[in-house]
Design a protein around this nucleic acid. Sequence first.
RNA 1: GCCGGUGUAGCUCAGUUGGCCAGAGCAGCUGAUUUGUAAUCAGCUGGUCGGGGGUUCGAAUCCCUCCACCGGCUCCA
Length: 646
Amino acid sequence: MISITLPDNSVRQYESGVTAMEIAKSISEGLARNVLSAKVNGEVWDANREINQDAKVQLLTWNDQEGKATMWHSSAHLMAEAIEQLYPGVKFGIGPDIENGFYYDIDTGDITLTESDLEAIEKRMLDLAREKQTFERVNVSKSEANSYFTEKGDEYKLELIHDLEDGQITFYKSGTFTDLCRGPHLPDTSFIKAVKLLNIAGAYWRGDEKRKQLTRIYGITFPKKKELDEYLLLLEEAKKRDHRKLGKELELFAFSQKVGAGLPLWLPKGAMLRERLEQYLKKVQKEAGYLPVITPHIGNVNLYKTSGHYDKYGQDSFRPITTPYEGEEFFLKPMNCPHHCEIYNNKPHSYKDLPIRYAEFGTVYRYEQSGELHGLTRVRGFTQDDAHIFCTPDQIKTEFKAVIKIIMKIFKALDFAEFITQISLRDPNTPEKYIGSEENWQKAEKAIIEVAEEEGLEAITEYGEAAFYGPKMDFMVRDAIGRKWQLGTIQVDYNLPERFDLTYIGADNEKHRPVMIHRAPFGSMERFVAVLVEHCAGNFPLWLSPEQAIILPISEKYQNYAENVLKSLNNSDIRALIDDRSEKISRKIRDAEVNKIPYMLIVGEKEAAENQVSVRKHGEGDLGSFSIEDFASLINNEVNRLQGFE
RNA sequence: GCCGGUGUAGCUCAGUUGGCCAGAGCAGCUGAUUUGUAAUCAGCUGGUCGGGGGUUCGAAUCCCUCCACCGGCUCCA
């Protein structure tokens, strides 16, 4: 007999060799019907794998992320089985579960799969699922594993096996499909009741662009048809928030083939929105002791040779601009930091001057691969809300923390509650990708890690994500359909000060090297606005909205009064306009609602007589009558409250 | 850059076994209407069917090529 400890700390006795499924059945049949896998001593196991010693067991269902993962991983196998049956001879790469569903990478040989083939695969998957196929776990030796896939001719699996240790290799067999797999899997395929293959794409084998590109099919499955329908509805709703769609509808920005791919055109409403964000940050930065600087859009090639950007990105940049006679080379500015270093170098500095904080909304141009361009989130010309802080080594942490404070203030003002903090360090395996001394890297990485701890930030750490000159702390936000985008960034840099020979005179009257902190709270105005649009679905906070109120006269008779109201609002710094079309009031309201204008002010006979406006709030409805003064202070109070400037 | 898909009016879309002057709704313009909380009515304008080349008596429709966009991969100072 063995003792099984359940999550509520109750202990039950079972025969050795009991499975999680049997444990579930001994508790209740209903539970057993929902068990997908089980966590045994912290490791996720098949529900029908024998447990031979005392263990802590947690039964996993669809309500657990690990339960979902089991379902989706098994779904990848099911899809592979279906594809193998429909297209014999295909070879398989890897097929993992992911955050929302699963994928499998497939070498389809001479045939090309397209979206139109997905339906047939889905159908076969459902047929196979109904067969209630079990997943059989088999321990195999390395040579057995090799001979199986040699016979099958699947070089991808052979490559995977090559990296595995003998004695640690398992196969899973379900129906006609056998896969190299660590598991775990579902008790049987009948748990999969609904299947949707979402998209099909190319993916390099092992993520290496020099290797063969396989066909990747993404899918998702559910234990109930209804849940799939709900998920698809959710995806559709998310698409409505897409900044590319809303940006067009709300006339914020546009692209033109003639101007060039990845070069956004800010339309008046978008430009006004962006200006407000810039003004806001300028105000915050002024309070925090930043000094404005302005630098040109191009720089001599030697500037970037000094900074190291030329060696690193020279080949992946727009080609240099040359002077007509001398042949002098200039690059479009890809970064503001080299320019700011030269501003620092413009005169000698004392330790008493530090920290010095140079801020610039600097527009930079970077060549991005054509397949990478994406709305406003990935463009070839964009404006960073950049600043560089030059400080002494012992000022780093204080300055770093002050920057975090600014970023938090902004995120709070814009209601970005769900962001991810990431510490990006070097990949210790590829030192050639980085410049600067080991000692300085260690110092810089240590500073960031300590700041995160001291500030109590829950940060994830990613190795290999650092900039080539230094480690960084990034703040990421998800877009409407769950893609992560980096917004704010703070980077500690010991390298550029060396390369530009930046110095300050210390209290000891000796020259010392300052440290640079690169930081951009928004990241880029383009990307930030994109994410903001998706975050609020185009319903901007009042202080950013291009139009805060629209005055809707009931008829032409009240046009004069409407103009008086507009004048008063403008005098109170409220952005408003009049809808003077000869339309019915309900039509004007509808159009204002569709255009997401925060407040509608209806004026007719009654309002004109009493010097009032009838206020309707976007998405909420009638708020009743207000005097113009009361409405103005309602707006201005809300604006101040949202910006955190009360 | 790579794999797959898409490209018809300002917007959303119909039209493809190749065949009358390429259609609709919304937007726009003109006129009528003067309206009380989510679409008033009528008329009109608007497209080198992404660009170029080819096949054909004839191309939005078939082929080639370039461009842009969409979904991924790789990349992201």
